[in-house]
Design a protein around this nucleic acid. Structure first.
Length: 203
DNA sequence: CACCAGGAATGTA
DNA sequence: TACATTCATGGT
């Protein structure tokens, strides 16, 4: 158990307060959002989600019933709209006749088998939509451990294991920690680190 | 104007 | 395994 990771979490929580990502969203909205947000600013995703919600299409059943071309137009603000429209159709198809009693490892492998779902998107869906204890790693997470020299690998599975072996095994902690790391990265450590106001001292 | 966001697929070496 | 390119919109 590495207390440094716990200290960083406590510091981020005190500084930024709770992020509560997707706390009031439905499972389908989370899955849709996880795909639309790939390499895309969240405010652009919100525009796309709003377009879907206006027509009551922000659920997987309606995604199945809507043409790929119509979806493209609606999700356009979130970018990569041709790919993402296809990805949404594929994921929606996968979750038709889905039994949630499936174990986490099996579900993760099945998600990773879908086109458009890599490690981060699969784990985001597992953690935020299905509340499975899986820590989500992203570019901000890798940058955090690199700048603070906490761990010397940038490989996804290595970084994920590093966190999961060194903080308590808890879904709510995983959800909040990932969101706080993103908040930190967006606020301070963008291109040139502003370590004057940043609560985490790096380098 | 340049840069990049809550990535992944594909191709090359 | 390690990089490079492509996909596309909108904010700063």
């Amino acid at each position: 158990m590495n207390s440094i990771l716990i200290n960083i979490y406590e510091t981020l929580l005190l500084f930024f307060s709770k992020q509560n990502w997707w706390d009031t969203s439905t499972k389908d909205e989370i899955i849709i959002g996880a795909i639309l947000t790939q390499n895309t600013a969240w405010n652009n995703v919100e525009k796309a989600i709003e377009n879907l919600k206006k027509r009551d299409l922000c659920n997987l059943k309606k995604i199945r019933e809507t043409s790929k071309e119509e979806l493209e137009q609606l999700i356009k603000p979130s970018g990569f709209y041709k790919q993402k429209s296809l990805y949404l159709k594929e994921v929606a198809k996968f979750f038709e006749n889905f039994n949630e009693s499936i174990d986490t490892d099996t579900l993760r492998k099945k998600l990773l088998g879908l086109k458009g779902i890599g490690f981060e998107t699969a784990d985001s869906i597992l953690l935020y939509a299905f509340s499975r204890p899986i820590f989500v790693v992203d570019a901000y997470t890798k940058r955090l451990i690199e700048r603070n020299k906490l761990f010397n690998s940038k490989k996804y599975s290595d970084v994920q294991r590093f966190f999961m072996e060194n903080i308590p095994y808890n879904v709510e902690l995983y959800k909040e920690y990932h969101a706080l790391i993103v908040k930190l990265g967006k606020t301070f450590c963008r291109k040139t680190p502003h370590c004057d106001r940043c609560p985490i001292k790096c380098e």
